[in-house]
Amino acid sequence: MQNVSPTMIERTRDRLRTVRKPRTAAAEIHAPAVKAENVSATYGGPLVLRRLNLTLPRGELIAVIGPNGAGKSTFFKLLSGVMRPNEGSITVFGEPVRFQRKRSAIAYVPQEEQIDWDFPISVWDVVLAGRFGRMREEGVPRRFLPPGFFTNGHRTAVRDALDAVDMLDLSRRPVGALSGGQKKRVFLARALAQEAQLLLLDEPLAGVDGRSAELIFDVFARARREGRTLVLVTHDLASAEKYADRIALLNRTVVAEGAPSSVLTMENLAQAFEGGFIPAKYEK
């Protein structure tokens, strides 16, 4: 056992990784970020999503818009693996969702209401949790260790991510003590630290002050330049029109999808929102 050097272990680990990967490499380069085919989903009652067909190309910022109960969050639940479709199939980068989840390819940035802000956890530890998937990839004895036992690479990733959202100074703060915008930035940092290729952002701009919003859009732009795909659910049509490469208008199924100017017509909006309330800030 003595003559097994760390480099040997690393080399073996790398070899194990390359054995697993090539099968998928070709598919991953050309496959769209998300491809949903004939997806239906229900919580036991009526269908929340009805034969949804949606293809989202990689490397873009995509806004998902629709009225309450249109199935936007359900769509996210399917992508994060909380729910399975009752019918149809969803692939992420050409592979079933569960494979990509195991590879830390999918990150989730929650809505503010979904988190218990009294939870005893610091900014640093929240972002470190983004590395848990990578830590679990390290093989059997190590994957069971608590996060404190993981060093170097993981810590650097956390520091870089916190730096990217300008939260490094506050890394020892409890998350509950932050402002709305800072909270969003911390969870965005978690997705960055995870090195995810598909970022799911639930209302990333709700309750965010001007400076934080600017910073968040900067991070979005950089992530997109790095080839990552960002999907955000939002009620803010004005920002969506301004920043998104693509908009998907949802109401149980896809009402319209494509470039913002072609999707955000009064006709489409009326159809999606069924003549009901069309979000403020968007009156042409």
Binding site: S80, G81, Y108
Partner: peptide, 25 residues
């Protein structure tokens, strides 16, 4: 609790992210 600390922490704090990371919630 020691061996599954990471899983337990993320599951109690943010179950959706736990699921997105491939954990069996």
């Amino acid at each position: 609790v020691f061996l599954f600390y990471k899983e337990l922490l993320l599951y109690t704090f943010d179950p959706v992210q736990a699921s997105a990371l491939g954990m069996n919630t």
